[in-house]
Computed example of a mutant assay.
Amino acid sequence: MGRPKQFEPGIAVSAAMEVFWRKGYAATTPQDLVDALGIGKGSLYHAFGSKQKLFLLALRHYGDAQVAALAERLRAPGPVKDRLRAALQELAQSDLADPDLRGCLAVNTSAELISVGREAAAVVRSVFDRIESVLRAVVEEGRRAGEFDARRDPQEIASGLLAVIVGMHVLARTADGPDRLNRIITAALLPL
Rank of each mutant, 00 (worst) to 15 (best):
A86R: 04
A15S: 11
N108S: 15
S14F: 10
Q93Y: 07
G40T: 15
Q155K: 12
L84H: 02
Q31T: 12
Q52P: 10
I39G: 05
P79M: 09
R180E: 12
L113S: 07
R183E: 09
L44G: 01
G2Y: 03
T186A: 13
R173V: 05
S126L: 08
V19L: 06
A26Q: 13
F148D: 00
A27L: 14
G38V: 12
E72M: 12
P178Y: 01
I157F: 02
E119I: 09
S126Y: 04
R152M: 11
S50Q: 10
V13L: 02
K53G: 00
L59V: 05
E8D: 15
S110F: 14
L190S: 11
T109I: 10
L44Y: 01
D100H: 14
A175K: 01
E147G: 01
A58K: 02
E90F: 11
R73P: 01
A187R: 02
D82E: 15
V164D: 04
K51R: 09
D149E: 06
L74Q: 05
V124S: 08
L190I: 14
A137S: 15
V19P: 00
L33R: 04
L54T: 00
K5V: 12
A120S: 15
N182S: 13
T29W: 05
M17F: 07
L105P: 03
A71F: 11
V139L: 11
L192C: 05
S14M: 13
L74K: 10
A187S: 06
F128Q: 09
D82L: 13
K53L: 06
R180K: 08
L54V: 04
G78W: 06
G142C: 08
G167E: 02
K81N: 01
M168V: 04
A121Q: 12
G2H: 01
D35G: 07
R136K: 10
V139H: 04
S115A: 12
P99E: 09
I114M: 06
E8G: 04
L54I: 07
L113P: 08
V116Q: 03
R173Y: 07
R183F: 05
A16K: 02
R3N: 08
G49I: 11
I184S: 01
W21K: 09
A87F: 06
T28G: 07
Y45R: 05
F20V: 07
R136W: 01
R152W: 06
A65L: 09
A188Q: 04
M1N: 05
Q52T: 15
S43C: 11
D35W: 03
